[in-house]
Design a protein around this nucleic acid. Sequence first.
DNA 1: GTCCCTGCAAACGTTTTGCACACAG
DNA 2: CTGTGTGCAAAACGTTTGCAGGGAC
Lengths: 139, 139
Amino acid sequence: MEPLVTRLRNREWRLTAQRRVIAETLAGEHVHLTADEVYERSRAVLPEVSRATVYNTLNELVGMGELLEMTHTDGRKRYDPNVEERHHHLVCVSCGRMLDVRADDPRLPEDQHHGFELLAVEVTFRARCPECVPAASTS
Amino acid sequence: MEPLVTRLRNREWRLTAQRRVIAETLAGEHVHLTADEVYERSRAVLPEVSRATVYNTLNELVGMGELLEMTHTDGRKRYDPNVEERHHHLVCVSCGRMLDVRADDPRLPEDQHHGFELLAVEVTFRARCPECVPAASTS
DNA sequence: GTCCCTGCAAACGTTTTGCACACAG
DNA sequence: CTGTGTGCAAAACGTTTGCAGGGAC
């Protein structure tokens, strides 16, 4: 697949310095960044980037399908370039600890597609971590 | 399984009128309520319930594993009693439209459990809905 | 030159918190 | 009676928006 920046240019996307920096931040090897982390990293490269632009750009990229928005248990949105190796999540419902895990992607049966064009699948396993299990033994 | 209120009493949970109403609201047949919806419904039954208490109670129930917190794409948290029929979600990355779908749950391989006690699995299929597909044909 | 993107700061909606009072145990 | 849960209102948090100026095409 072509690099992200190239794909964006081909979509007739106005390529500004800020947008390029944001896109390049996401194209890195990071796994799932919050909007604010993207903001900090982008600003480290190009100081004249505003928080608003980061949010706007992230939303556009998600709408284009070039980026996955994965809203995690912790309430804040996290973003993931959709080209990376797939991974899923295991989170403790009690303390919020989160681990990356590997598991097979579930398949969506053909009769459940509803005409949608599938892009990706996100899986979150809810669980109680070893430290939190003892506390729950009141049954 | 015993009713939710009974399970809570057995956990030495201080059972107040407000908490009972909140728990009963959730025990209903609803699928995924926001905190505010829980607040409205609880207040319809017992007017002297405050928003803060709803939030506190929901957080406690999630920590206990009696309730699943599922943060959807729309940013706000939604809550789901973990006893209901499982269903998954199909979300349009462009317009946010969300449908419930049925699909097999993915299995988490034994060597990926990390000592966690599994409670549930949440699956979100990211896609582009029929109305949003045409707009994206700029490649 | 035009239109879209940008930065700033203020607005927004949701969730959390501090405090004094009230009630379950 | 004691300790914990409650209501209220204000704060915190992440995100969005309105507006005037600036830069990509």
